[in-house]
Design a binder for these strands. Sequence first.
DNA 1: CTCTGTCATGTTAACGTAAACTTCTGTGCG
DNA 2: CGCACAGAAGTTTACGTTAACATGACAGAG
Lengths: 356, 356
Amino acid sequence: MDQGAVGGAQRGGSGIPGGRRKQRVSMADVAKLAGVSSQTVSRVSNGHASVIGSTREQVLAAMRELGYRPNSAARALRYGQFNTIGVILFSLASTGNSRTVEAIATHAAAEGYAITLIPVDIPTQDNVLGAFTRMGELAVDAVIVIIEIHLLDAGTVTLPPGVHVVVVDSDAGDRYSVVDTDQADGARRAVRHLLDLGHHTVWHVTGPQSSYAGQRRAQAWRAALEDAGRPVPAALHGDWSSESGHAAGLVLAGEPECTAVFAANDQMALGLLRAFHERGRAVPAEVSVVGFDDIPDAGFFIPPLTTVHQDFAEVGRRCVRRVLRQIREGQVAEPGTDLVPVRLVVRESTAPPPTR
Amino acid sequence: MDQGAVGGAQRGGSGIPGGRRKQRVSMADVAKLAGVSSQTVSRVSNGHASVIGSTREQVLAAMRELGYRPNSAARALRYGQFNTIGVILFSLASTGNSRTVEAIATHAAAEGYAITLIPVDIPTQDNVLGAFTRMGELAVDAVIVIIEIHLLDAGTVTLPPGVHVVVVDSDAGDRYSVVDTDQADGARRAVRHLLDLGHHTVWHVTGPQSSYAGQRRAQAWRAALEDAGRPVPAALHGDWSSESGHAAGLVLAGEPECTAVFAANDQMALGLLRAFHERGRAVPAEVSVVGFDDIPDAGFFIPPLTTVHQDFAEVGRRCVRRVLRQIREGQVAEPGTDLVPVRLVVRESTAPPPTR
DNA sequence: CTCTGTCATGTTAACGTAAACTTCTGTGCG
DNA sequence: CGCACAGAAGTTTACGTTAACATGACAGAG
């Protein structure tokens, strides 16, 4: 280094008081104030044992006085790790997503990892790809994808090398590490429950076609009916919203032989209940309704909703566990599907069909 | 573990093909392959103009071949910025929080910022303090706090110096930069609506005491009644959950003179509807109910809920705007409260009181 | 009294990137 | 023909931290 005369932008003059040029306090500053080397500050900062008590106290005092905070960028650079997991998702609006994300965040925090959210407004391929590109530039050790993975597959998306991935809500267990609720089992239980009550068959309001969860619930609904040798009515298509459930309910209310409906989520079930109420079709006396998710409100619908309980917290927990195992063992991929079990919660929206 | 035979973690030999020792590709690697200096790679990476076409192509080809991704830790270290905003929050479970967070994430992404979530399981002081400590160590340029700020004030918490803060749901506008829904106005509108319909007074089911939003809705409810010269019934205390609303509803169903209830959120209103239904009190013929939030499901309750619409997206947008202004202008604090307006959505759960 | 070992602390170097500066090449003009 | 100048690319250095090594002091053993 030549001369400092010019460099106002450089690091700022030394002793000029009040001239707060420097943004952040570094170890060097603490070290100077405490009269030790910056390495000693580092040792104190990281709780190494080999610092004598009096020195430690001095350093801590200096830290406090200057308001020292370690610079995580420098740390990350040094260690090659960020202690952060990225989460790519479409929307937090659905109960399932937000609860899963919350569980992921909680469990990750317990392991010393933070969560970085990358929302994708509209799940087109371009946007998802963009999210991954951004993710690649982001300070992230691994990624959890809560979005339809086929949007990635279809394109020429290559996941950033060296980034570990776990996927939620997907059938891509052959290529990725997938964690998911046991959608098929849930749908099966819902249908069985209704058949066991004596219903001849069960109608279905699906989720959006873009959702694997929705697709699988529909497949399992169909399969359960076929296995029981029952006729399979045409499915009505919803989009998870109570509004779409309501629309479907208005249609179903006009079908006299419809005595049992399985909605692919609780919100659509709410719409169904509303529609049946409007049309004077009593639930459960005339029509039974089963939902999926078991949102906290489901027990307070009119009538309280029989539904399939999903353990979102467990999904989040397993995502974190998988992703951390990948990070720690240094493996890039570890395909396979991890299914989280469900259970049916029977409330008051289901009953035997009306006798005639 | 002092011997290299084991340590694949080190840096790995140079030309050994296939032996992917090195975790990440650096500019130096790209530079070597492209036969240029790493500075040239940097220039290409950042789109500087002063690189001739052929060289640029070579570098890009090398980047592609090696799967180069810039190391954001090094970048952040260099620039002193992370392009990341931290969000401290209690829970994503409530509609309001998750939608606010989503809006924050979306708008931040549009500005090139990512969101890091720091969940606080139980909002004790210690935990919040811990979250802030963690945040201080985190790669974050600013923080948005969606949690009761008094949990911070009461303790000896000093916000990390140099970190910009915006707070949601708080009355701490004198000390912090606060963005919030106009809770008072919303509550006032709800009460006015019911009084205008002819109700003598309005009962209230509150949110949890720890919530400023809840407190302010309750205050404004009381004030609106007093301004109108009406008696103020004792408030019933809820905790945002439909279950607590249900419990309150069972109590209110037993009060014959109760003809109008304002619930501090929609979920508790759902519980109220359920309780009134159980007890055979017709809504709105005998009792009117107003909620707060206007969750998407509210229009499909039985009956569809009259409620105060909150613009969560706008709250998120303003948070991001404020926080970015702070970052860009380099100001640490900028106290003041920014209120987002609300509107009353009248549906079918309100009507004039029964004539007697 | 010297030698060895231990413990507290200091010094050096490296992580990957990019600003600032330096060097090199070729072009146009007097 | 030489010189100034512009443009392209290379070199140096610093960002803040910490592992690895170096230093120095002091204690106990021979």
